[in-house]
Amino acid sequence: MSDHTDGLSNAAAGAVARVDVDFTELARLAVEVAEKAGAHIRRHTPERVEVAATKSTPTDVVTAMDRDVETLIKGWVQQSRPDDGFFGEESGDHSRGELTWIVDPIDGTANYLYGIDQYAVSVAVGSRSSDESGWTMLAGAVHHVRAEKTWWAAKGHGAWQDNTRLRIGPPPGLSMSLVGTGFGYDPARRAHQARVLVEVLPQIRDIRRIGSAALDLCRVAQGQLDALYEQGLGLWDYAAGGLIVEEAGGVVRGLANGAPSPIMVIAGASGTVTALDEILIDAQAGEIPDASPS
């Protein structure tokens, strides 16, 4: 798997590189730049948002704001931490340092394009494991642009929504769990995800498809969703939100108790994730169909 899509490291992923830094200071910087980016988006969003480019398919869009905000975040981070690496979704920048900042300037771009208020800025900072097998996230922030709320976490220091500590409560059991998910852009992958959903839906309370994985993960940490599963996420989609779930007492995994990756990300309380994992394996959710002809 490429550098751009490796999952967060877990106990089996190899030793974590030693990092001598205050994780809460990293979190403060993540919050600062995420909130500044959100303010910029609110001030400068035009009356009509236009598509600037497309990526994997014609429906996988990039706006000028995505690019502008990523550039701003990179500059703000480098002012404070010039030796750190940077990995941005839109620019393709992937410089490496002892620490690397992993940024999604607008998670939920389609919502932003259509004027739906569910989109966020996601900023995380992590360290590559010493054997190059995965990442450990050290701090992260997700800023809900329209609601002006920020979730954040520092490794070993808990998860927070602004000044309120977050702790995932006792799981309700999968049959009573409200579960978030999302769908890819490629038609063949979407068809496969729909078939998986048919297997999942009868075994849970209900499904929610909000359009921002970063916000979904924060809702898991806050108790507004009981779990999330999604195929096709990039590291930038779940780096900050995944740490927030973990610091709230949850787990973030891939299929069969593996590391999260583009194949699958599952998040929630441990027992809920285990039960959902079994259903997803039975539904062959880890299959990645060949891309549809363009």
Rank of each mutant, 00 (worst) to 15 (best):
R28K: 14
I266L: 15
P187N: 04
P262E: 06
P293D: 14
S212K: 05
M137C: 02
G92M: 11
D277G: 13
R28W: 05
D162E: 09
A267E: 04
A52L: 02
N163P: 04
A153F: 13
R146I: 07
Y114K: 15
A110C: 00
V19Q: 15
I207Q: 10
P202N: 14
S56L: 03
S133M: 09
A30P: 00
P171Q: 11
G156V: 13
I244R: 11
R189G: 03
D237A: 06
G38F: 03
R146A: 03
I207L: 12
E246V: 01
R146D: 00
A12P: 00
Y119S: 02
L72R: 10
G232E: 10
A27D: 13
S129V: 13
L233Q: 08
P105T: 06
P262W: 12
W152S: 15
L255D: 00
A147V: 05
A27Q: 09
R18W: 14
G140S: 06
G211F: 13
V121A: 00
I207V: 14
G115I: 06
Y119M: 03
E230Y: 07
E230H: 09
M1F: 03
G38S: 12
I281Y: 14
A39K: 15
G258M: 02
L178M: 12
A13D: 13
S95Y: 11
H44S: 07
A256K: 07
D84P: 01
G134Q: 01
I288Y: 02
E32P: 10
V125R: 12
L225T: 10
V273L: 00
V273G: 01
L215N: 06
E247K: 05
R67F: 10
M65C: 04
H94T: 00
A240E: 07
R42H: 12
L29V: 12
